[in-house]
Amino acid sequence: MRDGNGEGRPDAELADRRLELERRLAERRAGPQTADGSGATRRGDFGQAFRLATEFIAGILVGAAIGWGVDRLFGSSPWGLIVFLLLGFAAGVLNVLRSAGLVGEPGAGRRRRD
């Protein structure tokens, strides 16, 4: 009786202990992360902010460069610069929204950028 049980019991006990351990691990994981998270998220936030800033500025710079080029080519100064700077501004905003995950990629069924 004891032997037969001895074969089965450790398995059941092991499963119980594993469940218990998992529960406790989950508790622990949830605990420190919220407490410790401030430092990690602050760093993450900084990275995110920097990323958004570069996206925005890149849009404006490219718009300005295209406008300047158009003006040089067609002698339409300053209209090319004005128009493309505005377009660049819009593109910068679009870049920012996209990299923040608020606007999807053009076209449906695309994976969202995160």
Binding site: A58, G59, V62, G88
Partner: peptide
């Protein structure tokens, strides 16, 4: 313009 700004960013 947004596409062209990708290599820059």
């Amino acid at each position: 313009v947004s596409f062209l700004s990708r290599p820059i960013s």
